[in-house]
Every structure is written in C-alpha cells, then in structure tokens.
Design a protein around this nucleic acid. Structure first.
Length: 421
RNA sequence: GUGGUUGUAGCUCAGUUCGGUAGAGCACCGCGUUGUGGUCGCGGCGGUCGCGGGUUCAAAUCCCGUCAGCCACCCCA
C-alpha cells in the first residue's frame, strides 16, 4: 500500500461515485416529497452557539458527551450541530415568520463524537422536516405520513413505525413521580448503569437493553396509562389519522427517544432489514416547549429526522434504490490526436447529450476498451479518413446495428434520434 | 466512554500455528500485423505485509504502543 500520509478521521469517510450520486438522488426524492406537501427548504449554519444545543437536554448523551464544541478566535463557545431541530427552532424564533404553521425541510451533515460502527458515524447525514405553530394532531399525522411515504418511495418495505406519547405538563410530572418511585423501590434489582441513568432521567431507564434490567422494566408503570384526558385525546386522533391513511404502526410504550425536549407524540422508524444494533432509520416527535426555551413565544412544534446513511444501508439490505446510472450517452474515440474530440464532445454536451472521451492519444484498441467499460450505448469514432471528409463513424456498442458513416454536421440530430429524444 | 475482534497489491483473500527478507484470483497496462470494445491466449506493472518501537544473526509472522475498520454495551440517525 502506498503509505498515505493522512486518512479521513475516525468516524468520517469519503463518499465516492456512484454512492455519492445515490445519496444525492435520495435527497432529491425527499425534497420532491416535501415540495409536494408545502414545505420550504431551510439551510441553517453547520455550527451554532453552544447554548442552542444545551437547551436540547442537560441529561442527554448527545449534549453531555458527544458534542463537538470549541472556543473560536473570539472566545465564543461554538458547537458543530449534533442535530438539526434545535437549529431550525432557533431560526424560527430569530425570524418569527408570520404565517403559521411554518413548515420547513432540511438536509445535511451533523456531528456527534461517538464510537463509530456500521451505520453510526461521527459525521452523518440526515434529512428532516419541522412544523412550528400548530398542535393540531392532523399535523402529527401529516409529518409521520410524509416519513412513511418517503420510505415507500425508495422501495423499502421492511420498516416498522413505533409510536408513543410522552404526555405533557398536564400528566407527565405525576407519571414521572410514579415511575421514579417504582424504580427506586426496585433499584436493588437494577444494574449500576441503570441506577446512574435513574439519577439523571428516570424515563430513559426504560430504554435499557441490558438483560438484567428487563424484569424491572417489564413491570414499570407506563406513560400511556397515565395520560391526561386531553393528551389521550390528541394521541387517539393521531392514531385514527394514521389508520385513515392505512399506515400501520405499533404502540411502543417504552419508546423514549434521546432528546429531552419531546412531549406528547413521539415515533421512530425501525428497519427490520438491518441486523445490527443501529436499526433506527428515523425518528421524531413533538417538542411543544422548545421554542419558548430558546427565547421565543410559546409555540408548539413537531418534526422528524431520518438518517441518510442508515437508510442507504437498509436499502442495500432490501436490495432497493440502487445508485443512478452515470453512463454517458456517447463515448468519443479520436484517432487523430484528440483535438477533434474536444470540439465534438463540446457540441454534444451543449445539445444535452452526455459525452465522455479517451485521452492521452491512446491506441484505438485502448480507447475502445475504455468506451466499452464506460458502458455507453454509442461510440463516435473519428479517424483520419473521417476527419478529412468531414464525417464521423457512429457505432452501436450494444445492439446489432453495427456502424455507419455520417456527416459530422448531422451528428447531434442522428444521436438524438438514436437516443430517442 | 467500556469490552471484544480484525488490519498483507486498487478489490477479495492465502501465508502468521513451528520467525529465514511475499503469493493467488479479479482489476489495470501491453501484445495477438494494416483504424474497432465485450470472449480467449501470452506477457507485464503493482506491496518497506496500517503506522511506530522492541526482542532476534534474521519478523508479515513474537512483544508493546498507536491509528483505523467491525461487533456488543452505551446511545442514537
């Protein structure tokens, strides 16, 4: 191995063609669906004041352990965004848009200092949407449905929608007390790790995958059994909306999610095609208090984020959504030194016909090999004879048509018709 | 952050047990007569064995460290 002096840092990677084209196609598909549903595109900064993310939750790993934060040259505390909801809500509060609900979609890289493994990177990419200014359960349904339909449009079939309600101020405090009391009573039966979690956020104890904690968790009181009348009604409306759309879901009473700002509706999309532990391909929920905590007016909000890298892994596992073709329409073989191909490829590209060519004055045989490898259906051959007569040879690389000599002036029209355009 | 596992040509891997200065397939390049790819045949390029240090007359093979991938936990997309 030619010893490379540098390599991409741990948890980061170069995404080369055609995988990069595939990722772009995924984002385009998502953008199209958002556009159809009336969402506008938001591009927010990749770094923000650290405080924006501290509001996300003092007890979360994302904030306490995993943040890429630093002091800039002006002495300000800066963080590379570990998620986008906080950024989008910050932008909402800052610009105070007049027409509510305000609906936005986004895509881009995010950063978390975690130990990487398949489907988990330190720089990863998400697409997502946020809706601010309405707590209508129909908004919840629209948001969840948009995610669900997106997976469908990629051809994914092995996705499970997990649904839960985390309640709100009207019922959550009472539930928290009940849960905490229960867990403290049973603390002796919990692992030490779980007891530590209990001190920080009792709710998250429910999320433990440790076998020793399973018995205690199985009997724990559940939020869904403690919802206030109003919250229960909201949750029921969300469910019936999903049923009206024929979107299957599973009530998952122990679905907690990692960010403290969630209230009421929470959900997660899990791929059953992924065998590793990182099977969550998307998640989201309501965050009715977040805008206020970032200095805005009390404004309800809901959104989701879908993991681009994990979705593509799941697509691999389901053998769907392949990378788009990068095959040029035409490959130009120039035997006269290469200068004529400069002119011909330029003409073709201006006419909207994708064209690649051989370089370095290689032999015809070598250029034909490259043309074959490129996979182009048509080759244009320019030899001394053609050049002298103002002609080019068009060769069928796949079919039985063989090759024909045409006037160079007719090349664009000839190829357009052969390509069916 | 914790524990485990792996790291040899562009790619997939053999060689590591019992130390003696590197192999295969694919890919790539060239040739198989005059300007023609895909099949086939022949030839060729390519690795200081992740990196650094140690033990040894001698290390891809043993020891230590480090970097990176993978797996589980943690957490999450």
């Amino acid at each position: 191995m030619a010893t490379a002096k540098f390599q991409a840092l741990r948890g980061t990677r170069d995404i080369l063609s055609p995988e990069s084209e595939r990722q772009r196609a995924l984002v385009n598909t998502f953008a199209e669906q958002c556009h159809l549903a009336g969402y506008g595109h938001i591009m927010s900064p990749i770094f923000e004041d650290l405080g924006v993310f501290l509001r996300v939750g003092e007890s979360t790993d994302v904030v306490t352990k995993e943040m890429y934060d630093f002091e800039d040259k002006d002495g300000r505390r800066i963080a590379l965004r570990p998620e986008l909801t906080a950024s989008v809500v910050r932008a909402f509060v800052q610009h105070n848009p007049p027409n509510l609900p305000w609906k936005a979609w986004y895509e881009g890289p995010q950063f978390r200092h975690e130990r990487p493994q398949a489907g988990r990177y330190r720089q990863f990419s998400q697409v997502g949407i946020e809706v601010l200014g309405s707590d209508d359960p129909h908004v919840d349904v629209e948001v969840i449905a948009l995610g669900w339909r997106f997976y469908e449009s990629l051809g994914m079939q092995q996705v499970t929608l997990l649904l839960n309600s985390l309640g709100d101020e009207s019922c959550r405090p009472q539930y928290f007390t009940a849960l905490e009391t229960y867990l403290r009573d049973r603390a002796a039966d919990l692992t030490e790790a779980a007891r530590e979690t209990l001190e920080k956020n009792p709710l998250r104890v429910l999320d433990s995958k440790r076998e020793q904690d399973a018995a205690v968790i199985a009997e724990a009181p559940l939020m869904v059994d403690h919802l206030s009348a109003e919250t229960a009604e909201h949750f029921a409306a969300v469910r019936s909306g999903l049923e009206a759309l024929g979107i299957p879901y599973e009530i998952s009473p122990k679905l907690v999610r990692g960010l403290d700002y969630y209230t009421r509706t929470t959900f997660e999309f899990a791929s059953t095609a992924l065998e590793n532990a990182q099977n969550a391909v998307g998640g989201g929920g309501r965050y009715d208090g977040l805008a206020e905590s970032l200095g805005g007016k009390p404004t309800p909000g809901i959104g989701f984020a879908l993991g681009v890298d994990r979705i593509l892994l799941a697509c691999d596992a389901e053998d769907t959504f392949p990378a788009p073709s990068t095959v040029p329409d035409v490959f130009v073989v120039d035997l006269t030194g290469g200068g004529e191909a400069v002119v011909v490829t330029d003409r073709l590209r201006q006419a909207g016909i994708s064209a690649d060519r051989g370089f370095d004055g290689r032999s015809m045989k070598a250029q034909m090999k490259v043309a074959n490898r490129a996979g182009s259906p048509w080759a244009v051959i320019i030899g001394e004879n053609e050049l002298a007569e103002g002609n080019v040879t068009v060769r069928d690389m796949h079919g039985e048509t063989g090759q024909t000599l045409i006037s160079s002036a007719d090349l664009v029209t000839e190829l357009s018709s052969r390509l069916g355009r």
